[in-house]
C-alpha cells in the first residue's frame, strides 16, 4: 500500500527538508520502517526502542489519532499519515 506521510517541522533536518514523503506498507509500523530506510536518522527521532514509539510521538491516519496500537494500524492505498510531536506544553 502506498501512503503519504507528513513530516513534523522538527524532523525536516532528518529528511533533507522534505515535508511530505511517499511511504509503503500494510501498517503504520511498516510505513515508518520504509521511512527509516529512506532516512535512517528518523529512527532515533521516532522510536524509544524497537516497536515502541517515543512518548512524545503521536500518529494520525487520515486526520484521526491512531493511538493505541498505532504501529499495527492498517494502511490502505492513498492514506495520509501525519507525525505529531508533543512539545513545550505547560
Amino acid at each position: 500500500m502506498s501512503a503519504t506521510l507528513h513530516v513534523h517541522t522538527t524532523h525536516l533536518q532528518f529528511t533533507n527538508g522534505l515535508e511530505v514523503v511517499a511511504v509503503e506498507g500494510n501498517t503504520v509500523g511498516e510505513c515508518l520502517n520504509h521511512l527509516i530506510r529512506q532516512f535512517p536518522q528518523m529512527e532515533k527521532a521516532l522510536f524509544a526502542k524497537k516497536d515502541k514509539l517515543l512518548n512524545t510521538i503521536e500518529i494520525y491516519v487520515n486526520s484521526a489519532s491512531a493511538y493505541p496500537n498505532e504501529l499495527g494500524k492498517s494502511i490502505r492505498d492513498g492514506d495520509t499519515i501525519h507525525l505529531l510531536v508533543a512539545l513545550a506544553g505547560g
Binding site: 507528513h6 503521536e58 494520525y60 486526520s63 495520509t80 507525525l83 505529531l84 513545550a88 505547560g90
Partner: peptide, 16 residues
C-alpha cells in the same frame, strides 16, 4: 501558559 496557550500548535495537527 494556562490562560490562552495554543499548546497543540506545536504538534502540527492535520488541517482537517
Amino acid at each position: 501558559h494556562l490562560r490562552s496557550r495554543p499548546a497543540i500548535d506545536l504538534y502540527h495537527l492535520p488541517q482537517e
